[in-house]
């Protein structure tokens, strides 16, 4: 009799243990299923997200060659590079001297002119205002250049000197210098620093 009671007690204890075990097992399986499904869905999502990145043919248009013949001192040329205008300017000796002697306290983003050119005669900057992306005027002789002989942004009035450095806001930084290289005396390659 006593033996039977003990045995029954053991049985229920065993069953209870099994119930706990099977609940833990189910929780574990649910967790694993969710995790595997989640990781799988995330992996499947990646190609869709990546397809919105620039395509191979878009990236292939990353450099542009410019023929510099016919640009006289004081003149400029604007070319399209990766969808943005690039200002090329053949500077006069006066303009070079002016840029090199610009007092640093006039500049909002101080930088030496020598650090922004490879040949002092040629200035190459991306013609996109660093404020909100408008194209500053000043490339054509008829356009307003602002007070610093460079460029004036028509959108919010930022002014740049003949080195492309910002002298009056709201633009926070100087016009960007793209990577470029002189292939020979009259050919410029924009988009890379190596010939």
């Amino acid at each position: 009799m006593l033996y039977k009671i003990i045995r029954e007690h053991d049985m229920t204890k065993k069953q209870a243990d099994q119930n706990v075990q099977s609940k833990e097992r189910r929780d574990f399986l649910q967790l694993v299923t969710t995790a595997v499904g989640g990781v799988g869905a995330a992996c499947a999502l990646w190609p869709l997200i990546d397809s919105m990145n620039p395509a191979a043919d878009t990236l292939a248009e990353s450099t542009v060659d410019v023929d510099l013949r016919g640009i006289e001192p004081g003149q400029g040329k604007t070319v399209l590079w990766q969808g943005s205008p690039v200002f090329i300017r053949r500077r006069t000796p006066d303009e070079i001297t002016y840029a090199q002697n610009m007092p640093m306290d006039t500049l909002l983003d101080p930088e030496r002119d020598e650090a922004r050119v490879k040949k002092p005669e040629w200035l190459v900057v991306v013609g996109v205002c660093t404020h909100l992306g408008c194209v500053p005027t000043g490339q054509k002789p008829t356009e307003p250049k602002g007070e610093y002989k460079g460029w004036l942004c028509p959108c919010h009035g930022s002014q740049f000197d003949i080195s492309g450095r910002v002298c009056r806001g709201p633009a926070p930084t100087n016009l960007q210098v793209p990577p470029y290289v002189f292939l020979d005396d009259h050919t410029l390659k924009i988009g890379t620093n190596e010939a």
Partner: peptide
């Protein structure tokens, strides 16, 4: 990525197949 114009449609699909990231898969 697709262009619904007779001049570009076929080319744009081929571009999806060759140049767009994972375009062939999608």
């Amino acid at each position: 990525h697709y262009c619904p114009d007779p001049e570009d449609a076929f080319q744009s699909v081929e571009r999806i197949m060759r140049d767009v990231n994972y375009g062939w898969l999608i």
